[in-house]
Write a protein that binds this DNA or RNA. Structure first.
Lengths: 225, 225
DNA sequence: CCCCTGTGTGTATCACGTACACACTACGGA
DNA sequence: TCCGTAGTGTGTACGTGATACACACAGGGG
């Protein structure tokens, strides 16, 4: 009595939206957005590709949802701290989130249908600044400057063609290889005197710029508040 | 004497690398990177898709070359001006270039094989700062901060889901539509009190932040130079 | 004048997103 | 207890993308 004539014939794995999102994010974290295909995602989840479409409307819908999960990971500015510390903490949190989810960097601010975590986050940041006495206009200045810097840092640094695990020297050399020696003397000096120095870590730059920006905003607010 | 038995049978259009690059860039400028397919590009150039591969090694090679053309459009810091004005001009130029070529924003700093225009640009900027007396370390701070801000502004502002031609009010409304009224009071206030005001133009924010950053760098250099 | 090399063409392959129709399954009512 | 129905997974298929391969043509040097 073979009650199961084909035991190997898929147990018809049960899916829901959450595992789909989590698996998609972890795939993108590891291999970038181009490693996230509906087929490979379905494969990892042990279902047929079309099964995914019962839980997401399309790949774009999937990415929208992934982005909102990412927004949810950003720490909201805490109520108690002064605005500067609150903004600093939020910036560090956002930087960490973008480092974990590089694929999201170019997408966070360009979705046509932002999710609730996205809107809640913006609402909290704006609220914190307004509560600290920033005028509407000064709030716009501050938020624009801070986010430009944070996202820009993530974009330019984290997308660099090497990361901590690479041999930066080798990468730099291969980039300059095709050109005549001494064609770019300032660049070479900069690389050898700074980037290739032992303790160098691009990520350290982040806090320098962040503090410069925050100090600048504090000064500016004094005059405009 | 039908010297051309099949006049309509392709005149075998002659191609070279330059028109391929220019056409590719103009397509990407208009429709974004996703509008740039080898097929449509070949179509616009009046050749078969595979003809392109005689002039570019692959689509990635094509994009690399496009990026280097874009780098070439950025004004190098002029020799005569003081560093602050030179950096300001470069920033404005870069902002303009990124506005014309939105598709390039996420790619400019992440190519594994930077072209000559790319390297020459970095060399010139670093050279200008060093010549103005910036230490190597302070040069790193300044360049990192400036580029993060410029690219970040381009990323967060120019990628916003609306541009000058859209009805911002309508877009904002449709974004908030799915959620309960008063769910995001600070965001709503900010939108109605600032973003939706008649003269609003996000691009104006750019110079505010840029000058704040430049002033901050000037102050910092005073102590560190 | 002919052949060689560089460049365009046709065709084919493989990966992707996703439409469509169908199959399975669990659950609630008769 | 059994069946109908709604929800969810499956197989197949199509259109579009990048691009390999072999071939066709054209124009210049011998």
């Amino acid at each position: 009595m073979a009650t199961e004539p084909l035991p190997e014939s898929r147990p018809r794995r049960r899916l829901s939206r959450e595992p789909v999102l989590q698996t998609a994010i972890s795939r993108a974290d590891q291999g970038g957005l181009e490693a996230l295909t509906m087929r490979s995602l379905a494969d990892e989840l042990g279902v047929a590709p079309m099964a995914l479409y019962r839980h997401v409307a399309s790949k774009e819908d999937l990415v929208d949802a992934m982005i909102d999960v990412v927004f949810g990971e950003i720490g909201l500015p805490s109520g108690g701290a002064d605005w500067k510390n609150a903004m600093r903490q939020r910036a560090m949190s956002l930087r960490g989130v973008l480092a974990r989810h590089r694929w999201a960097i170019g997408l966070m601010e360009s979705r046509r249908s932002p999710g609730p975590a996205n809107l809640r986050h913006h609402d909290a940041v704006i609220g914190k600044l307004r509560a600290a006495g920033f005028s509407v206009e000064m709030t716009a200045h501050a938020y624009s400057l801070l986010d430009s810097y944070i996202y820009g840092f993530a974009l330019t640094k984290m997308n660099l063609p090497f990361d901590a695990s690479d041999d930066i020297g080798a990468v730099a050399q291969s980039m300059l290889e095709p050109f005549p020696v001494n064609e770019y003397p300032n660049l070479v000096e900069f690389l050898s005197e700074h980037v290739l120095k032992p303790g160098y870590d691009y990520a350290d730059e982040f806090e320098y710029g962040l503090d410069l920006v925050l100090d600048g905003l504090e000064t500016a607010r004094g005059g405009a508040a």
